[in-house]
Computed example of a mutant assay.
Amino acid sequence: MTDTELLARCHTVFPGHRARRPAEMFAEMAAWCEANDVEHDVYGAGTLIQQFEQKVAALLGFEAAVFCISGTMTQPTALRLACEDRGSRLVALHPTSHMLVHEKSNYQLLGHFHALQVGDRHCPWSLDDLRAVPDLLGAVALEVPMREIGGQNPPWDELEAIKAHCRERGAHLHMDGARLWESAAAFGKPYAEIAAGFDSVYVSLYKGIGGLGGAVLAGSRQFVDRAAEWFRREGGNLIHRSPYIVAAAMQFDQRLAAMPAYFQRTRDLYEALRAHPEIKVNPREPQANMLHLHLPVRRERALAIRNRLAEEHGIWMFNRVNHAALPDTSYVEIYVGDNLLAMSDDRLREALAVFVDALRAGA
């Protein structure tokens, strides 16, 4: 049985939002289009897409923004342009940067820029990490929050110091904001204040928002216009972006409004996990509505436990499982969304207890 088939049988699902089948989502999109008199854009020109781009730009405190089909196209392009402006092809990246870990060396093979790994892979950047770089940097790319270390962020004062440092040394500061929407509740700051001091920001339209895909790049009008031209040159010039914009726009305000509730539910999950010291949680306290659970079983055993709980108890604890550094351990990511928000406290504790019993038996 496939993972999708197992998940479909479960009534208790921990990670993410409730999955919608294509027919359901497309029907919602059609109804929203009808209610809002939506017309297709043509190569990015149209009322809906341009209004949505400007809405995101204003939310982040920028002059302009542009849609792009993927973050994998958006970020290396933006950083290459930033490096051209600064006269250096060197970009500081955290060792867990999405561009290093998940993008198949695109920045290198396509000749966008040279990457310099900075800092400890287990910790967010500090000001001292960047101060220790003697080279002339064209750009610095900072993920907010940092997915690969459980959604961690630098403390607010440290983030502000990093912004000031990049400004003083003349380096373009770019935000990988794939999960920026998840950070405001933890920081207790509006999005524009978090983004203030960055020269450009990329945000996702499908991760926390739940759209079909796509991304938005925000920055100055001149920078955004140049990036848009390069997206066209790189094959991102879809004749109709409207399906991606509609899928995001129809639920955008609702998703952002729910982020504080997701964060509070993350705190509730942390509290429930305190009863189970077998599971180690990273970070120690929530910094976004996501976290990593470090388990006392190897990856293959964790997958077997997940699948057995799905078959026998209707519980789906996590999606992907990762090898961990220590032998006979693994870790999983939990994104706290609609599924956990709708789950009762009693059911949450009961499911955790069943999971921990299985871990003990399998350890």
Rank of each mutant, 00 (worst) to 15 (best):
E5T: 10
E5L: 13
L6T: 07
A8S: 14
C10E: 05
C10S: 02
V13D: 03
V13P: 12
H17K: 09
R18Y: 13
R18E: 14
R20M: 15
M29A: 08
W32Q: 02
C33S: 12
E34Y: 08
N36C: 07
E39C: 10
H40F: 09
Y43R: 08
L48K: 02
Q54N: 06
E63F: 06
S70F: 08
S70M: 09
T77V: 14
A78M: 13
R80I: 00
A82K: 01
A82N: 01
S88M: 06
L90E: 03
S105M: 13
L109K: 13
F113S: 02
L116S: 05
L137N: 03
L137S: 03
A139P: 11
E143L: 00
G150P: 06
G151R: 01
P155F: 06
I162L: 10
M175D: 01
W181R: 00
F187L: 12
G188H: 01
A195R: 01
F198H: 05
F198A: 07
D199C: 01
I209Y: 04
A215K: 02
Q222Y: 11
F223V: 00
V224L: 04
E229D: 12
W230Q: 15
F231W: 10
E234L: 14
G236L: 08
N237M: 07
N237D: 14
L238M: 13
H240I: 11
S242A: 08
A249D: 13
Q251V: 15
L256P: 08
R274L: 14
V281G: 01
N282A: 12
P283Y: 02
P283D: 00
E285Y: 03
A288R: 05
H292C: 06
E300Q: 13
I305L: 09
N307K: 04
A310L: 02
I315V: 14
W316E: 02
F318L: 04
N322S: 14
H323K: 12
L326S: 12
T329Q: 09
V332R: 00
E333Y: 09
E333K: 01
D338E: 15
L348K: 05
A351V: 07
R360S: 05
